[in-house]
Each structure stands twice: as C-alpha cells, then as structure tokens.
Design a protein around this nucleic acid. Structure first.
Length: 248
DNA sequence: CCAGACGTTGTT
DNA sequence: GTCTGG
DNA sequence: CCAGACGTTGTT
DNA sequence: GTCTGG
C-alpha cells in the first residue's frame, strides 16, 4: 500500500506549506517509486528542513542491505514496537510532501490503478520515518518509509490501507521528537477525513516506473472484460493448505 | 546464555 | 514462485 | 507498488 | 541495536 506517489508542487508551494527555508531543486514527479530519491521534511536544530532520502528504510544496524527487505511502509499500529522502526519513531520522524498517491484495486479483471489526491488540489503530507545507514566503505545514506493506517471510507472501496496523512496543525507535534513522546505522536496517525480525498481510475501506464508524466493522472476507463489486464500472480500458501488438512 | 530475525503487502 | 530494480 | 529477470560454461 | 525462540 502506498507504493507509488506523486509530488509536483513548486519549491514555493513547498516552502509555503511546510515552512522550510531551503530552495530545493526537486523536479515535478508523477510516478515516484521505491528505491528512488524522495523529498522529506524534518526538524533540525528547531527548524524545518527539506532533505532527500532513498525510499525504502534501512535501519542503522543493518549489516548487509542487499539481504534486507525493502521497508517502504510501516504500520502505524505497530511501528513503535518493531526493532526496524522503534528508534525512528522516537528520534527520526519526518513528512513526505505529496500531491497524491496511486493505489491498485485488485479484482476479477485484474489490477486497476487509481489516482488519489486531496479534493482541494493542494500538496499534502504523509507521516514518515527516516534513518541513516552507514556504508562500511564510507558514506551515509538517509532512507525513509511512509506510515500506513486503516483505509477511510473513500479508500475502503479500493484498498484496506492508506498512508497516514497529517494536517498542517499536526506537523509540529509529529516533527518535534524532542518534545513529543512516541505515544502522543502515534495518536496523530489516523485515517484521513472521508471528504478529504478523491479517487479517479487511471491508465495502467503508471505501472511502469519509466512513465513519469502528467498523463498518468488523467481519468481513464475502469477495467472491463473488453480491456483485459494480466492478473497478478497469486502465491499458494502451503501452511494454509495444512490448516485445511488439520480440520479432518 | 547464544542464534537469528528484524517488514509490508495480500492471499488462502 | 521469488527476487531485484526502479 | 509493478515489471522483469531468474544460469553456467566457454568462446570470440 | 533489540527482541524472540530455543
């Protein structure tokens, strides 16, 4: 959930909304994917700062990132208790500026991408976590993950999870890791109000990370039998089969 | 005590 | 089916 | 998140 | 680093 999103706001819009003084050179992005550089906002020495990080959090204690799962999302309900996120929940909270995100609804016809954005068309903020991984060969890499919560009513028709979206009045508390404890911060992570977002079906062109253009957000026809799309391969769980056998 | 995992998604 | 790359 | 690869030996 | 399983 929330494995692709978009950020097309201008630097001016970013400063207006998030209050950082930086003038970042972040081009409009219509299809931001895991492992790519993402814009984040964090608090440094009491001030909000823009920064770039790699999408896919790697905890600082990881020895070999190549053999560690890419952590693009973190469950808000449990992040504070997980070894991979615990330190970040305490000390490394951030915001992901976003113009909207993509969600795939899976059905009999296949997988249908939807573009989801604030009804007011403005830039929003996902709640996120970041960490720094130090390469033994030298060099520190900042990485980050987006927190997720239960879907609200709008999103429920598409998917059962959604990114944790913070309203501007919650930015300070979320970012101030010195003054705001984890429990208090976690309480900010709620499904967005039902009327905050709108969702429109879009072209499967968004599936390919090579596509990164405004057309990805144009309304498209929902899937139909006349326009088949390959279904995602489904894994068979052997332990589930075992459970079935246990019934007999 | 040490060894080994450390995550989310969705699926059955 | 499962892993890697973007 | 989806797309695309997934391997070795030996040879030019 | 920190937690779980044995």
């Amino acid at each position: 959930m929330c494995g692709r999103y978009s950020l097309t706001a201008t630097p001016e819009e970013g400063r207006e909304r998030f209050g950082y003084s930086d003038s970042p050179d972040f081009p409009p992005r219509y299809n931001i994917a895991p492992t790519q550089p993402v814009a984040i906002v964090r608090r440094e020495h009491g001030a909000r700062r823009f920064a770039l990080a790699r999408w896919g959090l790697v905890p600082s204690w990881v020895k070999d990132p190549a053999s560690f799962t890419l952590l693009i999302n973190a469950r808000a309900e449990t992040a504070a208790d997980k070894p991979s996120f615990r330190a970040a929940m305490r000390h490394h909270r951030c915001l992901f500026p976003a113009s909207g995100f993509y969600e795939w609804r899976r059905g009999p016809q296949g997988s249908q991408p939807w573009w989801i954005r604030p009804r007011d068309g403005g830039v929003m903020a996902f709640a996120g976590l970041w960490d720094t991984w130090s390469d033994p060969d030298g060099g520190d890499i900042d990485t980050a993950a987006i927190l997720t919560v239960e879907a609200n009513r709008t999103m429920g028709a598409i998917h059962h999870r959604m990114p944790a979206i913070l309203m501007p009045d919650a930015f300070d508390a979320w970012l101030d890791t010195a003054a705001v404890q984890v429990g208090q911060a976690r309480a900010l992570l709620r499904p967005a109000p039902d009327d905050y977002l709108e969702a429109v079906p879009v072209s499967a062109r968004v599936n390919s990370v090579a596509n990164d253009d405004p057309g990805l957000q144009q309304p498209a026809e929902p899937l139909s039998a006349a326009e088949p799309v390959p279904k995602r391969a489904r894994a068979v769980r052997c332990d589930a089969a075992d459970d079935q056998l246990d019934l007999f």
